[in-house]
Design a protein around this nucleic acid. Structure first.
Ligand code: SF4
Ligand code: SF4
Lengths: 144, 144
DNA sequence: GATATATAAGATACAAGAGTCTTAAATCTG
DNA sequence: CAGATTTAAGACTCTTGTATCTTATATATC
């Protein structure tokens, strides 16, 4: 898999929080509500949301009417932010073969082809904001 | 990581076998020689080469002067063959978010962008043959 | 203040990946 | 045939990722 389970959960949950914030105008969404709708473990999602909170992508609030919400406007949060917080960015800097000490100076024969696509992927996730995804989701009634 | 450790070892070892076959004209290379030069565990590499042998990518021969060698001409073995044998091709058919039952009919908002790059990656590994890599390696004195 | 609701934090359990080791079978050489 | 070499097969260990569970802590409502 390209991303860890936790990372994909983080993306899906962030997107759901975004749509709920935009559509219903709510500031904090309980994690239980998210885990129910996304059909995944509440406890596991809790831990992941804690990571996003620590990374200043989410804000949290305890007690009744508490939950998690975006710490910044949805158009300022990119998928790279979420990926970096959960999985790190090794995928976009390390290489397909993972040779020790590899790089531009001493490349393996796969380097040119892989590095190009690696950077393209990085740019793609960097340009994709939660606001953009939420908008696309609403326009086309896509799944989440 | 994009590929498992075993898969990257498989690629590196296949490539080394290819260059040895081409340059030295040897049919079988002992796995110990490969593991020594690639600086990785002999026993682990043995297990991986067994997978490649089972997949008809390599041929093996026991006893003195034995070892492993390419089962087909190097220009007919692609990286996709090696990847498919060790890691499988899920990476190129599954999606970034791994939603259950996802696909063209009910796509998530990431689908279009990801599917395009996923197929591009698949094509890249499909077009890359061991012979091509070995040639590039020799021409430019690249690492392996 | 008492109680219910929610996240925070960390202990624990389970599964999968990565790596090691041992024994068996095949092959060559002398 | 005897002994050395080399892969085959599988048991075993260690580490990491995934998931669950329990106990704290903060907050709101009454
Ligand atoms: S040279 Fe490039 S492609 Fe090759 S192992 Fe290093 S980073 Fe990866
Ligand atoms: S719709 Fe496409 S991008 Fe979205 S989860 Fe499914 S395969 Fe992946």
């Amino acid at each position: 898999m390209l991303f860890s389970k936790g990372c994909t959960y983080a993306i899906r949950a962030s997107l759901l929080v975004t749509t709920k914030e935009i559509k219903d105008g709510r500031k904090f969404i309980p994690i239980r509500e998210l885990s129910d709708e996304l059909d995944l473990s509440f406890h596991f999602l809790t831990k992941i949301m804690q990571v996003l909170t620590e990374a200043k992508i989410m804000e949290s609030f305890r007690g009744p009417n508490g939950g998690v919400g975006l710490a910044r406007p949805a158009r300022e949060i990119t998928l790279i932010d979420v990926i970096a917080a959960v999985d790190g960015l090794d995928l976009f800097s390390e290489c397909a073969l993972g040779l020790p000490g590899c790089g531009e100076k001493t490349p393996c024969p796969l380097h040119a082809a892989w590095a190009k696509r690696r950077e393209d992927l990085h740019r793609m996730f960097e340009k994709t904001t939660l606001a953009g995804l939420a908008k696309e989701l609403e326009l086309n009634a896509l799944r989440h």
